[in-house]
Design a protein around this nucleic acid. Sequence first.
DNA 1: TTGAAAGCGCTAACAT
DNA 2: ATGTTAGCGCTTTCAA
Lengths: 362, 362
Amino acid sequence: MSNGKTTLRDVAAAAGVSPMTASNALHGKAGVKQSTRAKVLEAAERLNYRINLTASMLKSGRSNIIHIIVNEFDSPFYSRLVQSLANETTARRLTPFVEQTRYSPDAAKQALTTNPFSGQLFDGEIIHASGLGTNLPLAKMNAGRPLVLIDGCEENPSVDTVNFPNEEGARAAVQHLIERGCRRIAIVGGGYTPRVKLAHVETSYGLRLRGASGALLDAGLPYDGSVTFNGYNSKEGMKAGHEIGDLIIASYRHQIDEPPIDGVFCANDYSAFGVIRGLADHGLRVPDDVKVIGIDGTSFGAYSTPTLSTIQVDLDQLAQFALDMITRRIEERMHGGTTVAPTRATIGYQLVARESTEIVRR
Amino acid sequence: MSNGKTTLRDVAAAAGVSPMTASNALHGKAGVKQSTRAKVLEAAERLNYRINLTASMLKSGRSNIIHIIVNEFDSPFYSRLVQSLANETTARRLTPFVEQTRYSPDAAKQALTTNPFSGQLFDGEIIHASGLGTNLPLAKMNAGRPLVLIDGCEENPSVDTVNFPNEEGARAAVQHLIERGCRRIAIVGGGYTPRVKLAHVETSYGLRLRGASGALLDAGLPYDGSVTFNGYNSKEGMKAGHEIGDLIIASYRHQIDEPPIDGVFCANDYSAFGVIRGLADHGLRVPDDVKVIGIDGTSFGAYSTPTLSTIQVDLDQLAQFALDMITRRIEERMHGGTTVAPTRATIGYQLVARESTEIVRR
DNA sequence: TTGAAAGCGCTAACAT
DNA sequence: ATGTTAGCGCTTTCAA
């Protein structure tokens, strides 16, 4: 016991066995007599022994730590994502190590490459970060180490990927607005992209735009630069709400019958709250004057005023898929197995209709 | 280079120096010739060398990792807290390792005691977790390892502690309601505790209650079981909102002049959103019918409808204080210095008045 | 069923 | 300014 810390040696000595036997006993390995194991466990307990993981890792090359990389902690969406991933990681007796890139592609790249923890301390990595779109860099960056990409949106993924139901979800959201009677539907998110350019998009917003615009065109409704607005978070969403509000107020003034906008699809919930706020600043009410739907399904939408209709994505399923993939790769790696081609999965979603898209009798 | 991984040996060999010189060169230690350092760095770059942290930790006993323990990731408050702590940790060239206890005191205890990472892998720990109130266990649990407690609320802290302005903030919030004309103020949080029992409370809510009730009594307003409600999150807050709404509606029916409740102080923002939602379910409007104020200052209050008045606490300052304390303890420990008595600090706050407490002309 | 030897990759301490 | 030695605490391998 050097330096006040009990080592395996101490435990072994106290139990009257070799360090190796003590190690095996503590790890519950087969081939240790019951009585011997009992002695060892007792000694460990008595001496308050705790394994030194650095030593264990150094020798075994495994840490059971999964590196989870996201853009930031403090957003309703990411905090929920991290929660799901961390819970599922823990459930599988692995340890989650969460890191944020703060939306810097450099930081994300660094997290995977120059960061000395990566690949040495971590058994695998799960990443959801912006600016990592393209194919080649990723596979190379991780140099064959177990890696799962969240919402990579690649057509031909080079690594295991779990995608959000971007296109399907956005389509369902817009169809819902149409069913609720909307005829002039705005899209708030990353602005306008013509349909032809959406054919092979590989970004989350691009896919959402494809789904949303598809639903509009299928219903014979307009999709062009006049119905798209910028707004990816609450702050920007509020600005979009102001712009939309300006249009509506102007139409009132000119006594135009058809409202210029009567429904809004927001590329995420966070932005939707901002839009509602922005409309409220102009005295416009949701759903009375304009209906609003988001996508993501952050828990907050159930308690806001009005409560928010949204596309709820199944983040627990996402976490399960991601951990299935990563553990499979880790196993594969341990047993030097054959490398299987990258897998892809898309998680489920559910339309949750709440007050913000209710039909209001006038 | 065994197993495809470049080791320090490889770099040293390639640069034509000893491993020790290579190590010193890579770490920028003094006493290495410029030309030698250059050779080493070039070799490391070329061979794509990355230090093996497990080995380094094992030998040096330092990891530069700070363990951050919180109740959960997915709450507006905790995600913001973690963000601040993680940013500040990174800014000091340390690595944050975030863990959630999911509100289980056992998990918190385990994170500090039986978790093998603790004290072996981590240089220090910062914890904000429920169920860790009492003095003795904590100091013991961490067995002298650097530890900082967030919002421990102890009268005589046994470890370094950074507290929230619980009492002062709650007092300011209630005084604000009074200034805005409220005369029947409800407190939504953890229920009722008589004043005498609040004299030596050591919990966050207890202190908030002391501040709030103090402000009420000082103004000659009632503080008793009839003005306190349970509601610590949005869901419970919504229920409290329903209860308060019931009271108000009943008073309308009985044509009572004085409203039974005209202001609500919520023990956190999250709960405040729920209260507003609950009141809305009864057709009651904020601030028109009831004024509401929260405490914490989560960013969301700026975009909600109505925007939420709150006590904004300075989480960046909290992170600074906490890291000052922990790095001081780590240094102290390295240099075997004298153990200084536990420090305590309370962070600042700011009253942010928004729509939810605006005076409405009828 | 148990133990002895060897070494993971690095760095503190001590030479040179 | 550079190199040598030793060993952190554990586990893999092989022998008993």
